[in-house]
Amino acid sequence: MTNDSEEKQPPRPAEAEKSAGTPAAPSASPFAPGGTPSSEAPAKPVAPSAAAAAIPPKPGAPAKPPGPPPPPKEAPPKPAPLDNDLVRRYKTRFSGAIQEALLDRRQAILVIAADRLLEIARYSRDEEDFNLLVDLTAVDWPKREKRFDLVLNLYSFPKNERLRIKALVAENEPVPSVESVWPTANWLEREAFDMFGIVFEGHSNLKRLLLPEEWQGYPLRKDYDILQQDEAWVRENLGIDSGQ
């Protein structure tokens, strides 16, 4: 059983190179950590994207919040707009919903409208072969109007590509659940709910995953204060001041 696998060609690297070469567009294909490490040298990938980035001064990237300090190193990696076949396909299909396409450190990012997440997810899985939902998580930017980035990391086995889909979500704004597309999202969305309080509509069993049911607050939000939480708990359960 294990022996025959030796005869099989490990097809992936070859495929990886192919997909790295074939998708047109000057910018590197949107698949994440370089197919071959020889192309992983940091200077190389940065050069074209940096050049591209030089022209438009970061067209409304999801407001990387506090002032980006200029690191004095050579050609720092920077998010740059991305325009390749994949992005164009998405854009033609969901014209308004794709708000932005970025390339950050050779990884493709699509920023989409949250309300069309489910459609886009289904399209990604069925048409673009992103059949593995690697991860679903969120990032909190409390100063922004829509404070959460909902981040879906996708992987395509046939293409050996990664794609990151981001949806901007406001607090208390329900997001369509992608559980029906990738069943694994069940727990991941529960965790996002648990940690950020993002409510997923259509989720089969939306309750806390890691924290106890009666937990107050959402720990991974930036304004979550552990001390406050601790004091409240001590006061409630032990009837004393924690004195911390």
Partner: peptide, 20 residues
């Protein structure tokens, strides 16, 4: 690190171990 983000994953003994 300059602003931005990365997802990198390795093949851990148990599966894909990723850091975002």
């Amino acid at each position: 690190p300059p602003p931005g983000e990365i997802y990198h994953s390795i093949e851990g003994p148990k599966g894909e171990l990723g850091y975002y």
